[in-house]
Design a protein around this nucleic acid. Structure first.
Ligand SMILES: [Mn+2]
Ligand SMILES: [Mn+2]
Ligand SMILES: [Zn+2]
Ligand SMILES: [Zn+2]
Lengths: 127, 127
DNA sequence: GGAAAATTTGCGAATGACTTGCAAATTTGT
DNA sequence: ACAAATTTGCAAGTCATTCGCAAATTTTCC
């Protein structure tokens, strides 16, 4: 595992919030080329060490957000995103396996992935 | 309501599947400029006549898909997308209000929108 | 209906996230 | 340490989407 790879994985693991490639590329403590950051995030996601989702917010546009995913596997999370302060709230590990299976049975398709997230205004920003 | 607006709304209403701005712009029977299509889709969504979501598929990249939404209001749908044939299956109207409310109570945030969709291989493409 | 005001359209250029080709640098296998 | 395989940085490219602006359409008001 290369230096860049390790550093990017550590940054992911350390971050409480999902981050974009751009955020990591601009992080002074990392200072790797954006192409390197993008390529390594892809790599880490393939490996199952990261998970990502695409989110659009009017202020920051459309970007893919990454978060750390334990090597142990199944810890798939979903998030709430505040459109004011742009922070994420971790809704915890996904609890929809049952519903997914029901749908797979009903429609006879095979689900390989699912996307779920919420947007709105967080408690702090309402006040 | 302008000619373009009406035509784009009709195209949406007529389509069984969610469509992208590009698909509509390239539809020969419409032949409006892409900027016009994009602007009117925004407009229709603000009005509540359309709903959209952003979906990434390896073959077609990241695009926003639009579908018709009855003026009567709450008919919010979710979809399954086949990564082989790129067709969508309508999973029916959203049934997560209860869960949403539970989250709002738990975290004291206000949900303004939610995104949920599945990707995988459809019945026909498995065969 | 017709003229002026308000909105929308088409066109071309810009934007911004993300990708890619390629030569140099790093990492890996022995 | 040496050669082979992989990764990196840089610069240029891609592609959905947006934007400025002048011309065309739609709306407002008489
Ligand atoms: Mn945001
Ligand atoms: Mn597709
Ligand atoms: Zn907030
Ligand atoms: Zn299919």
């Amino acid at each position: 595992m290369t230096k860049a790879r390790k550093a990017i994985l550590e940054a992911l693991k350390a971050s409480v919030q999902p981050v974009t490639a751009m955020m990591l590329a601009k992080e002074p403590s990392l200072s790797y080329d954006q192409a390197t950051v993008y390529r390594n995030l892809h790599y880490l996601e393939e490996l199952g060490m990261a998970q990502s989702f695409i989110l659009h917010c009017s202020e920051h546009g459309t970007e893919r957000y990454y978060s750390y995913r334990g090597a142990d596997s199944g810890i798939h999370h979903h998030w709430f995103h505040c459109e004011k302060c742009h922070r994420f709230i971790d809704l915890g590990s996904c609890g929809y396996d049952e519903q997914m299976h029901a749908w797979e049975k009903k429609w006879d398709f095979t689900i390989t992935d699912h996307t779920f997230f919420l947007t709105g205004i967080c408690s702090a920003c309402k006040a």
